Computed example of a mutant assay.
Amino acid sequence: MEEMKFFRRAVAPTLAEIVEWTGAKPAGEVDLNVKIFDVAPLDRARPGDLVFLDNPKYADQLAQTRATACLVSERYADRAPAGVAALVVREPYRACAMVTARIYPEAARPGSWFDSHGVSPGANVHPLARLEPGVIVDPGAVVGPHAEIGADAVIGPNSVIGPHVRVGRGSTVGAGATVANALIGDRVIIHPGVRIGQDGFGFAMSPRGHLKAPQVGRVIIQDDVEIGANSTIDRGANRDTIIGEGAKIDNLVQIAHNVVVGRHCVIVSQVGISGSTELGDFVVAGGQAGITGHLKIGMGAQIAAQSGVMADVAPGAKMGGSPARDARLWLKGVAALDRMVRRKGRDD
């Protein structure tokens, strides 16, 4: 029995088409008219499947794979078994992602949950909202007054678009997400359960009690950003919270008020960024890293998972540990501590 797929296959490309899409070069004699019907991992592939090898850890699996073709770096091309077409490409994982997006386009960009067209009868769109052509609004969604939704955007079921919010063209707001006090760019993907534009955590602390400080800023999300499920992005207090072009934010991330995230940053799950901190372009923050407020994280800096960042970080720096410090010193410290513990154990 064929395994059930939740995504519909749009095409079954030939190897010639895959070569054209990815710029791969066939290694040896390859029948470019052979078709590919699916993508699979090396150890579970069957004839008709495309696989890739990008991590040397799995190199041994290539020799055993039953796939029809493999996207592979030149280094491992000669490990492909007889009958498996080796397609040599510089970045196999990226190339496989490109092919997968062609075969399963619905998985690349979330669409309507109901195969809807236009505004569902079960949606509530305010008469003063403005929708461009091709917008889909699923059942249970609410679009507030003066909101503007760009062409071909998808507003998922039970999501809420607040008053005066703008959602750019080709963007998707997932099921149950809420967007308020925000301007969203083009081709933005907002996954289910995301909260954008709610209060930042602002209080004037005092022994007499804590006075709420109104948050009157906005959230600005630039083009081609992706925001993972159940992440939260607070609106600014007295300036804007900004998420730069092409940034990729994982699930369960907290971004506080006035934070600026640079272009093409990668923020992994359970990261927390405190208020008014600025991340330069191409910063990477590993899972569960915590970054305190009012810091500057330089362009291209890398923060290891579970790090606690309490001071500014220079451009290009690699940081780890808590409190975070130069990653090499942190690793040396961990190794030295392990040696001390082992010696102490032997002495005891």
Rank of each mutant, 00 (worst) to 15 (best):
V137K: 00
V313H: 02
S231P: 07
V39I: 13
P92R: 00
V284E: 06
I267H: 02
G168W: 00
G262R: 03
A153M: 06
N251F: 05
D152I: 01
D186Q: 00
L42R: 04
H257V: 03
G202C: 04
A289V: 09
P323T: 05
H191Q: 14
K248N: 10
R169Q: 15
P133E: 13
A304Q: 05
A317C: 05
A27I: 01
H164Q: 15
A204W: 07
A108G: 12
V341S: 09
W113V: 15
F52A: 03
F52R: 01
A95P: 06
G23M: 10
F282R: 15
G293I: 06
G122Q: 10
I291M: 12
R8V: 12
E245K: 13
D152E: 15
I196C: 02
R46C: 13
A108R: 01
T172M: 10
E2C: 08
F203Y: 15
K296C: 06
A129R: 02
W330E: 13
S307F: 08
A256S: 15
D186E: 12
H294M: 09
A12S: 14
V154G: 00
I255S: 02
Q254V: 06
A304H: 05
I103H: 06
G176Y: 09
Q306V: 07
P157E: 09
V188E: 04
P145C: 15
G244E: 00
S116L: 13
P157A: 12
R346T: 11
I36C: 03
D54V: 10
I227G: 02
F52L: 00
D223R: 04
D250F: 01
D223T: 10
C96G: 07
A12Y: 01
S322I: 04
V99D: 04
P133G: 12
R342K: 15
I267E: 03
A80G: 06
Q306P: 01
H210V: 09
V119H: 02
I255V: 14
R94I: 13
I190H: 04
V19L: 08
A101K: 08
M4N: 14
G134A: 04
N230G: 09
V84E: 09
H264C: 06
R325E: 14
D348G: 14
G122K: 09
A69P: 06
H210I: 08
H126G: 08
T22H: 05
P157I: 07
P214R: 09
P81D: 11
G174V: 02
I18S: 01
V313R: 02
A63D: 10
F201Y: 14
P47N: 10
G111C: 02
L183T: 14
A107R: 11
P110A: 07
G83N: 11
A67R: 04
P214V: 08
F7I: 10
M310G: 11
P145F: 11
Q215T: 10
A45M: 08
P133A: 12
R339G: 08
D31W: 04
D38L: 02
H117R: 14
P105Q: 04
P56S: 09
H164M: 13
H164N: 13
S171L: 03
V119F: 05
A304R: 02
L295K: 10
A101Q: 11
K212Y: 08
L183A: 15
A123L: 00
K296L: 07
R239S: 14
